[in-house]
Amino acid sequence: MSGMQIVFLVAAAITLVSAVLVVTLRRTMSSALLLVLTLLGVSVLFVLLQAQFFAVVQVLIYIGAVATLILFVVMLTRSVMDTSEPQVHKNWWLAALVSLVVFVALVVTLSSWQAFPQVQRAIPADSGENLAALGKALVDPNGFALPFEVASILLVATMIGAVYIASERKGEE
């Protein structure tokens, strides 16, 4: 077992355990903090996949922005959080069953792929993403310029919409 594999297994184990805790813990605050750990684990896997850039983006956006936002909201809405009773529905076993079936189905589907063991890395061991190519593709009219612009419009719309929805208006209690 190579060093890389050990790193993978440790990171994956931490990620999965903390992910399970994220969805099961009673205190939303703890869940949110463990979410940060999960996201960090995922970014480690990104590095192992030689996607260093996206590992950084993961830390910046997910941990820096998304998880922080969630933490803020958790703190803002703390007064109605009731931790005395379970934070999952009574019929949580149904959800667990569904999730398990999905997992098993995915694994079974994967294992039915014959060519699996032969797959080798397409990325050379010492390189990462070709960021120049990615950047060009995003603004190239023959590449992804339109999806890129649509995404930016989406972000603007989101920003406006979020401000509008969350802003306090006169006349409300």
Binding site: H89, L94, A95, V98, V101, V102, A105
Partner: peptide, 16 residues
């Protein structure tokens, strides 16, 4: 909403 989601997943699995 969540029960609907569960039902939707059930149907998805059934379809699969």
């Amino acid at each position: 909403i969540q029960q609907y989601m569960v039902m939707a997943m059930f149907l998805l699995i059934l379809t699969g």
